[in-house]
Amino acid sequence: MSRTQLLDADQAPITAQPYFADGDPGPIVAALATVPELLGPTLNFVGAALGPGSVTTRAKELAILRTSVLQGCRYCIHAHTAVALDVGLSTDEIRALRGDIALEDAFPEVSEQTLIGWIDALAGATGAVPDDVWIAARAHWPEHALVELTVTVGATMLLNRLATGLDLPTSDQVTARLRTEGFV
């Protein structure tokens, strides 16, 4: 049960109604719609940060799911476990990102290990990121890719806090999918 009212199409503010035109837009939009002037800018930012960019969809989804795990966001872990499956991450890779099995076993590529190290330093700790983590990641990823993925991690953390703070409910559709795939 969400801590805040999740608006439906009848109560959607006049400026938010396009987001409800094709049916239930999901809990994040339904919650953000209570402050309609934030809805468009937030979705535009999150869409740009999490959507297609110069790095691969696989790398972005790896960053999103790993960040959500580190932040302990139940809603985002559920939602992005389903998305990760959709973009081709294996069950073992997802289990590793979720902390169920060893990362090194699921991600043998050094480049992805360094990327996970960068994400863990950003989303799993506070303070400065150690130089050796940056240097290791830079050996495999161009600087602009790490900037882009840093924004992806930051945007994910925004969603993590939103979904966790407001206790947004996992959708029935996602729950059913995770049950089918053996994740719940």
């Binding site: 109560q11 959607a12 503010p13 002037e37």
Partner: peptide, 26 residues
């Protein structure tokens, strides 16, 4: 007992230019 939000433009009321701009755009 619950506020209707279907005609809500913004939660921001001041500066007035923010809701006024939103109304005109709408």
């Amino acid at each position: 007992g619950r506020l209707d939000t279907d005609l809500l433009l913004t939660r921001t009321i001041l500066p007035l230019s923010i809701p006024a701009s939103t109304l005109l755009a709408t």
